[in-house]
């Protein structure tokens, strides 16, 4: 039964660790920042796009609408970005993109045509 004890100890430590990690997040926090209270300098340039955040209930990290925040910003820029991303296949940081491939290593593809490289450039690299 000694071996059963080792399993018990392991299960207890495992359970406590996981429970600890799960209860620790999300941290119980305040509502969103209130710039008026924090800002010692009276300001009229409080960003309008934050209005959405300001009136949201609960802790921002726990909110499901993280994607929503993106729309809170300049819509034009956002749309442009979206087009840009979809041309490349995905937007950075989106879960759907997690399986995205790593870039091609040097030597397996030509350097990008960003105007910096001479045509037909072959990068040489050396680590000492």
């Amino acid at each position: 039964m000694k071996s059963a004890l080792s399993l018990l100890a392991l299960t207890a430590a495992l359970g406590l660790s996981v429970a600890g990690a799960l209860t620790a997040a999300p941290i119980t926090g305040p509502g969103p920042a209130s710039p008026q209270a924090a800002d010692p300098v009276p300001s009229t340039t409080t960003p309008l796009q934050l209005a959405d955040n300001d009136h949201d209930d609960g802790w921002f990290f726990a909110r499901k609408g993280a994607r929503h925040d993106r729309h809170a910003h300049d819509d034009d820029e956002e749309d442009e970005d979206d087009d840009d991303y979809s041309a490349r296949g995905c937007a950075a940081g989106q879960p759907a993109c997690a399986l995205n491939l790593n870039p091609a290593p040097a030597g397996t593809a030509t350097p990008p045509a960003n105007g910096l490289f001479a045509p037909g450039a072959k990068p040489a690299v050396q680590v000492n």
Binding site: A25, I27, G29, P35, A38, P47, N53, F61, H73
Partner: peptide, 27 residues
């Protein structure tokens, strides 16, 4: 960056500019 996610904060007024919570996979 905290256990609960990442927030970008305006150094001028202390407001949260944008944030992201970890996904279930990340956790």
């Amino acid at each position: 960056t905290t256990t609960g996610g990442t927030a970008l904060i305006d150094p001028g007024n202390g407001a949260v500019l944008s944030s992201a919570a970890p996904t279930g996979w990340q956790r």
